[in-house]
């Protein structure tokens, strides 16, 4: 019957589509490696941290300042955003009246969807001048940390909020029967119970912060240097790619792809560690 042939054809077609989707990751990795190869062939690896500086036109490819910039901004943002996101989730779950909690959650969800370029714009126009009043030039590691913290805060708050919501109410009954207060219960019972959720939240936020480009590009000042203070301008790996890709040629271009490849591998590692496919819908 033609109907069976029809179904078999569709099955093959769907399989091809699925394989295409699955192959995109390989394609991306393949192209990154392919574009990275020229510099790996001509330049030894240690020059990425031994060269006198980042001067691609003079064959100097020291990425250390950018790596430090990326790490500084990311670590700072995660350190600032994690406690705030945690308290914000606790507020939503245990302190706010139901209506307020609902509104607050809506606000956080809305902010999770605001484009990074809008955060960057606000940081550039509002935050940077404020910091400049304290310590010029304003565009700095600190500005990057604050804007990035603001951006990853919704992610952290929403993930922790969801894990707190999944705790069984019996915890609260047990704790209330012991005469414990809200904060004592949060601190002693709830937070230890959601350790894995906390870890997931921090991992996801770290991955997002590492890969973020636009906001840090707009507020960090983009000077290639190892920052000597929190008010010093820095350039991250992502900003470096965004700034120089447009005119980079040959080995310079290849070096940018190399930094992209490293970013991708680090972020992939974080994603794999967080084990997101355990909650994937099973067919």
């Amino acid at each position: 019957m033609s109907r069976f042939k029809n179904e078999a054809t569709w099955r093959v077609l769907l399989r091809i589509l699925a394989l295409c989707s699955g192959a995109i990751l390989l394609l991306i990795l393949g192209f990154l490696v392919w574009e990275t190869l020229p510099i790996l062939r001509t330049v030894s690896l240690d020059r990425f941290w031994r060269d006198p500086g980042w001067h691609p036109s003079e064959q100097a490819y020291n990425l250390t300042p950018m790596v430090i910039g990326t790490l500084g901004v990311t670590v700072g943002a995660v350190l600032v955003a994690t406690p705030l996101g945690l308290l914000s989730a606790v507020f939503c779950q245990y302190y706010a009246p139901a209506g307020v909690a609902q509104l607050y959650r809506r606000l956080i969800e809305l902010l999770a969807g605001i484009p990074s370029v809008v955060y960057g714009l606000w940081g550039l126009v509002v935050l940077v001048p404020l910091i400049a009043k304290v310590q010029p030039p304003g565009s700095s590691l600190l500005a990057g940390i604050l804007i990035l913290a603001l951006m990853i805060l919704p992610t952290i708050a929403l993930v922790i909020d969801a894990s707190l919501a999944s705790l069984p109410p019996s915890y609260w009954r047990g704790s209330a029967a012991l005469g414990l207060g809200t904060w004592a219960t949060v601190q002693g019972v709830c937070l230890p119970a959601i350790r894995s959720g906390l870890l997931t939240a921090v991992m996801l936020a770290t991955a997002r912060a590492l890969g973020e480009t636009m906001a840090v590009l707009m507020v960090c000042g983009n000077v290639v240097q190892v920052p000597d203070s929190i008010f010093a301008p820095v350039r991250t790996l992502t900003a470096n790619i965004a700034l120089e890709m447009a005119y980079a040629l040959d080995l310079h271009r290849s070096a940018l792809f190399a930094s992209g490849l490293v970013l991708m591998l680090v972020v992939t590692g974080l994603v794999v560690v967080t084990d997101p496919w355990t909650d994937a819908p099973e067919g």
Binding site: L32, A242, L263, T268, V271
Partner: peptide, 19 residues
């Protein structure tokens, strides 16, 4: 395929730009 899609979801956007 699932795993590759999950990783793809986490790839930084600038890397998509490079690709």
């Amino acid at each position: 395929i699932r795993l590759s899609l999950d990783i793809l979801a986490g790839v930084p956007s600038i890397v998509f730009g490079l690709f």
